[in-house]
């Protein structure tokens, strides 16, 4: 495993993402930040903190489980665990920032978009990821990407303090 980001790198990257997102938020538009389980929700919480520090007010926070919307359930087999989706706010008319740790094929994001649209009609949805590792199979691209690394077929793992006890992005075969 190659370590491609350490703790400091992750926090600097998130600061940069928060700067970009803050600039993109339209004036007087209600904001919702939705993280995809697992890891995307941890990153979403951190981003909300950073956005609030930049003066963004009244950010609604949500957690999305996309298992019910995946199109590859047969491939991941009986291992898929469905967890709760916790989006307690109305997405209608909001500026939604969808947060995930890694974007690869784009299929998770496709599932997440379908899930959010079943909840209502947001004003817009923007995608923020920590790592864009290439390998897209669908025409879906992040609006805000922390780092890019083309990593072929190998693994890219994002480990976060909240879930794994350590902040680290690593890549390996």
């Amino acid at each position: 495993m190659n370590v491609i980001l350490e703790e400091r790198g992750i926090s600097k990257t998130l600061e940069g993402l928060a700067d970009e997102i803050e600039e993109a938020i339209p004036d007087r538009c209600a904001v919702g930040v939705i993280g995809i389980r697992a890891r995307g929700d941890d990153l979403a919480r951190r981003l909300i903190g950073l956005l609030e520090a930049r003066g963004v007010r009244d950010i609604a926070s949500g957690v999305l489980d996309i298992t019910m919307y995946r199109d590859d359930l047969a491939e991941i087999g009986p291992s898929a665990v469905v967890r709760t989706t916790e989006i307690a706010f109305d997405v209608e008319g909001r500026f939604i920032i969808l947060v995930d740790d890694v974007i690869h094929t784009g299929r998770s994001i496709r599932a997440a978009l379908a899930a959010i649209i079943d909840l209502g009609r947001p004003k817009s949805i923007r995608l923020c990821v920590l790592v864009d590792r290439g390998g897209r199979e669908l025409p879906i691209q992040p609006d805000f990407a922390g780092i890019r690394c083309d990593h072929g077929e190998g693994h890219v793992n994002v480990r976060l303090e909240e879930s794994d006890g350590v902040d680290r992005v690593e890549a390996g075969t």
């Binding site: 590859d72 291992s79 665990v81 690869h104 094929t105 793992n157 794994d164």
Partner: peptide, 8 residues
């Protein structure tokens, strides 16, 4: 699929 750990 993304290499993230999932409980299952």
């Amino acid at each position: 699929a993304t290499g993230a750990k999932a409980e299952s």
